[in-house]
Design a binder for these strands. Structure first.
Length: 597
RNA sequence: GGGGGCGUAGCUCAGCUGGUUAGAGCGCCUGCCUGUCACGUAGGAGGUCGAGGGUUCGAGCCCCUUCGUCCCCGCCA
């Protein structure tokens, strides 16, 4: 076999005159009869190889005629300069070409089902079925190179900061909280199941108890929930935990990881990354993961609506609800259909409707002489309208939109509207990457069956003493923090509870009694009784991070072998049926699926 | 569990109001071609219109069922 002496994409004019050996794939072939051009591609790039009848042996020329796309070649040749009129400035290697004098076909290829050389849209399941072809495309390769660099940057940084890379088990015990578990039957213990980790949460806390002080892991996590463009059943976290720390320490380390990661693409992060509380995020942006690339902040007019004639606003304002609005600057470019679509959008997300007021573009600039187009202005007295306009800072050409509903819906829908409007109007982002921390989340929220933890039950509440937990639980915040990038939750974490009495109390409040707490988390509760230090940490979603840094539309583009939306793998046809013998060995019987034997 | 989009040649797609033999670009095959780089050129092959059922004189097109895929809601402590 001819082995390469240099990667294809690295050959330059400085190599002219040298004899080189190359390995690679046939990217394209152009057969001119007596002269054949082959674009040879390997991971490093592409170089043009020429087989010239007048200079190559007949054997080499004949062999080159049989070569097709994606054949794998080994060849030897001389690096020669291209004549000035044949230099290709579009190619890194465009100043030179390889005059081939020895050629070996290392493998042939069937005609590719889709082109590797062209970057056309291909059906998703076809791409995944022939993933090895899809991944040969440069656009894909570049993403995995960046992913590698990010992981390297994170590892180097964390190593420098004294973190130990420790692996935690994949086979775990199922706990019913949180997402649905992937289960693995135990042969040795029939009828019992392992669960794949949703995250290494409890183990990393145990490692703190073990005195490791600083832990990290590039950790695979598994959640059996429905998929989205940014959600896969298995995904990867950069998982971090530290002892003897508070929020500032964890956030500083996280920012360090992100800073090192982004420096690989030449992006400098703000130092420090700005922070806002959960309450501020909700009131300004209607979301606990605000997208700061756009203005369009929420304006509350609940107080102005208590006495207005407009019954929809009046009723909501006087029954504990809220009226939230947005001022769409120069929104007059929105068509009536756009507005109708926004109303429909609001309904889809749970609001009863959406009201709007357009201040006509050609209105007089005097606020009292504004001319409106709106189904609702007739319900407002002139002075009420004036106050409303002042509250929004509205000027001619602006469009105001309103959601009136119970607070949770009003925040949520208005928050979603902001992003929808930004999309519809094609608003220009203030910057490509806008980070923020969101801190001080509520510790608890009202679930369908009592109180549940907003973050997870091991999060430290913001309290002075355990007795505070006897008061209004919904008023208590947690020492949790999320890192948000462009409205996407990149990661989250918290300072943890490190005392068993507090931990037990929290679990009790969540309607988990001592017995079941001990059954599920007994090992953690026990560890807390044996000198577990104060600790906290965070996990970053690596796939989402890479997705955003590469400008990818889907997390699938940055995972080598992703699943389809129905959680299948077209490449391997996983998941598949198993034999009756396997089932028997595991003590399982299948009721619904047909089992292939 | 629910809403929406898509499924026609190897790939990407067009196909009007239901009407003759289902088209295009790229790819593929054969011939020609010594300077192309998305080579050119002449010719050619290639179709279960996702599948099943129904309506109709007649279905790629309408209806029902179903499968696959994508986006979204719910879900994702």
């Amino acid at each position: 076999m001819i082995k390469r002496s240099i990667p294809c994409g690295l050959i330059r004019a400085s190599h002219i005159g040298q004899t080189v050996s190359l390995n690679g794939w046939v990217h394209r072939r152009r057969d001119h009869g007596a002269v054949i051009f082959i674009d040879l591609r390997d991971r490093s790039g592409i170089v043009q190889v020429t087989i010239d009848a007048s200079r190559s042996s007949e054997a080499v020329h004949n062999l080159a005629e049989t070569v097709r796309s994606e054949f794998v070649l080994g060849l030897k040749g001389t690096v020669i300069a291209r004549s000035s009129d044949t230099v290709n400035p579009k190619m890194d290697t465009g100043e030179i070409e390889i005059e081939c004098h020895e050629l070996e076909i290392l493998n042939t290829s069937k005609t590719p089902v889709f082109s590797v050389a062209d970057d056309e849209e291909v059906d998703e399941s076809l791409k995944l079925k022939y993933r090895y072809l899809d991944l040969r495309k440069k656009s894909h390769l570049d993403k995995f190179i960046l992913r590698h660099k990010i992981v390297q940057a994170a590892r180097n940084y964390l190593d420098k900061e004294g973190f130990l890379d420790v692996e935690t088990p994949i086979l775990n015990k199922s706990t019913p909280e949180g997402a649905r578990d992937y289960l693995v039957p135990s042969r040795v213990n029939p009828g019992h199941f392992f669960a794949l980790p949703q995250s290494p949460q409890l183990f990393k806390q145990i490692l703190m108890s073990a005195g490791f002080e600083r832990y990290y892991q590039i950790a695979k996590c598994f959640r059996d929930e429905d998929l989205r463009a940014d959600r896969q059943p298995e995904f990867t976290q950069i998982d971090i935990e530290m002892s003897f720390v508070d929020e500032d320490d964890v956030m500083a380390i996280t920012e360090g990881v992100l800073r090192e990661s982004f420096s690989t693409i030449g992006v400098e992060l703000p130092n420090p990354i700005p922070r806002m509380t959960w309450a501020e995020a909700m009131s300004r942006f209607g979301s606990d993961k605000p997208d700061l690339r756009y203005d369009l902040e929420l304006v509350d007019i609940s107080d102005l609506c208590k006495n207005v004639e407009f019954k929809v606003f009046n009723d909501v304002a006087n029954s504990g609800g809220m009226i939230k609005g947005l001022n769409i600057k120069n929104g007059f470019t929105l068509s009536r259909k756009n507005l109708d679509d926004l109303v429909e959008f609001s309904r889809k997300h749970g609001a009863k409707g959406m009201a709007w007021i357009t201040i006509k573009e050609d209105s007089p600039v005097n606020i009292d002489q504004y001319e409106y187009s709106s189904p609702i202005v007739k319900f407002f007295k002139p002075e009420e309208l004036r106050t409303l306009m002042e509250r929004f800072g509205a000027v001619p050409g602006d469009v105001l939109v309103f959601i009136a509903d119970k607070p949770s819906v009003a925040y949520d829908v208005t928050g979603r509207l902001r992003l929808e409007i930004a999309k519809v109007l094609g608003l220009k982002p203030k910057a490509p990457y806008m980070f923020t921390w969101v801190t001080d989340f509520p510790m608890f929220e009202k679930g369908q069956e009592g109180i549940t933890a907003l973050h997870h039950p091991f999060t430290m509440p913001h309290i002075q003493s355990v007795d505070d937990l006897d008061g209004d639980l919904l008023a208590i915040n947690s020492r949790a923090y999320d890192i948000i990038l462009n409205g996407v939750e990149l990661g989250g974490g918290s300072i943890r509870i490190h005392r068993s009495d507090l931990q037990m109390k929290i679990l009790n409040l969540l309607s988990i009694d001592a017995e079941s707490a001990n059954e599920k988390f007994g090992f953690l509760l026990q560890a807390l009784e044996f000198g577990t230090p104060p600790h906290g940490g965070l996990a970053l979603g690596l796939d989402r991070l890479v997705m955003m840094m590469t400008g990818s539309e889907s997390i699938r583009d940055v995972i080598a072998f992703p699943k389809t939306q129905s959680a299948t793998c077209p490449l391997t046809n996983a998941p598949g049926a198993v034999s009756l013998a396997q089932l028997k060995e595991l003590g399982l019987r299948i009721k619904i699926a047909v089992v292939e034997d």
